[in-house]
């Protein structure tokens, strides 16, 4: 498989990265270089193999249902590019 410049444009949109207009051709080539190379995974017989999502084999730890956090609004908003009245302020986003 390989990608076209249109597909790279679509992926960039999906990833919310402004279209890399100047580098579109080069980027497409780079991605295709990587995709061609990973293509070799097709040689491996993976019939019946369970996908491995993590190296961890211990069970998922669970916490008790207790309020142990929150009430740190200052910390939450401290690094905000824009905040007002206890809210994050972001560009208008009505759907």
């Amino acid at each position: 498989m390989s990608v076209t410049t249109d597909e790279v444009r679509r992926i960039a949109k999906l990833a919310r990265i402004a279209e890399p207009t100047a580098r579109l051709e080069a980027l497409t080539q780079e991605l295709n270089g990587i995709l061609d190379w990973v293509e070799q995974l097709g040689e491996v017989d993976v019939e019946g193999v369970e996908p491995m999502t993590t190296p961890v084999v211990t069970p998922l730890p669970m916490r008790e249902d207790a309020i142990t956090d929150g009430n740190v609004r200052d910390k939450v908003l401290k690094n905000a590019p824009n905040a007002d009245a206890g809210f994050f302020v972001v560009p208008k986003s009505v759907e």
Partner: peptide, 16 residues
């Protein structure tokens, strides 16, 4: 571990 109660002041029931 942040609380779920309804009607709190904005961003007060928010953990990092």
């Amino acid at each position: 571990g942040a609380a779920t109660a309804f009607g709190a002041d904005p961003n007060t029931q928010v953990s990092l």
